[in-house]
């Protein structure tokens, strides 16, 4: 069975659900809006123009996670998975197509989000943002796209494992909003290797911890790969 028709089918499923399209838009809007707000407040000793301009990612990632979770959890409602797997009985292929579509969609929106946030952030920062080089800006925007895509896929894999979007979101959202903020200040510890902390290094102009921008994303990618593999195991092993 060729892969392209399955990809096409999964893409139709994404763009024909209003909640999923709204989720993608929310990534852009929320990130840009919070980035603009953060750029207004430039006081403080550790001011980082790049992170100021991309600060909204901390909030936009919630939308990315919700998107990833919803895209998969819509298959676990009312026997939808049976219809999907009756059409594509090769479960690995079906799951790979689902993950590809989720990842590519969020990557695209994430790259755009990075560029827009950066532009908005720089405009709000004015002179204070002039220290930011094009190279750093580009790295931040690309990193933003990759990071958001990885987080969406992390949620997608977890949802496939737990078979529930609610369960996934009630784990991930509190984790990102609370745990990470609370222990996030403990820099230089294992907290640096949490999926969100590690991946967000790329959004900073300078990195202090053990991880650099790309190694940080690699750590997040490992978390995502683990979640996706666990989800794949669940999809392949369990009865639909």
């Amino acid at each position: 069975m060729p892969f392209a028709p399955v990809l096409h089918s999964e893409w139709i499923k994404i763009r024909t659900l209003r909640s999923l399209v709204a989720g993608l838009c929310a990534i852009l809007v929320v990130t840009a809006a919070f980035s603009a707000l953060a750029a207004l407040d430039t006081d403080g000793t550790d001011f980082d123009p790049l992170f100021s301009a991309l600060f909204g990612v901390s909030f936009g990632q919630t939308a990315a996670i919700a998107f990833g979770a919803l895209a998969v959890s819509s298959e676990f409602q009312g026997g939808a998975l049976r219809v999907s797997l009756a059409a594509v009985p090769h479960r690995g292929r079906w799951y790979a197509a689902k993950a590809t579509v989720v990842g590519v969609a969020v990557l695209g929106v994430g790259l755009l989000t990075g560029c827009v946030s950066l532009a908005v952030g720089k405009a709000v920062l004015g002179d204070k943002g002039s220290g930011l080089s094009w190279g750093e800006g580009l790295r931040g925007a690309v990193g933003c796209g990759i990071y958001l895509a990885l987080m969406a896929l992390f949620a997608a894999g977890l949802t496939a494992l737990l078979r529930s979007g609610v369960a996934t979101l009630s784990i991930l959202v509190p984790f990102l909003l609370l745990v990470s903020f609370v222990i996030g200040d403990l820099s230089g510890s294992v907290a640096d290797f949490l999926p969100d902390k590690a991946g967000q290094v790329v959004l900073h102009e300078t990195s202090e911890g053990a991880l650099g921008p790309w190694t940080g994303l690699a750590v997040t990618a490992c978390w995502t790969a683990a979640a996706l593999l666990a989800g794949a195991w669940s999809v392949r092993r369990r009865d639909a």
């Binding site: 999964e10 139709i12 499923k13 024909t16 409602q77 009312g78 939808a80």
Partner: peptide
């Protein structure tokens, strides 16, 4: 080769009937 109806509730409520069938049709060309 095989058409099946297992559960009438399987189509996602927020999708239109036509889009539901389009997604299925696309996967099998």
């Amino acid at each position: 080769h095989v058409g099946s109806l297992l559960d009438a509730q399987a189509a996602h409520g927020s999708r239109t009937a036509r889009d539901h069938l389009r997604a299925l049709a696309a996967s099998n060309r």
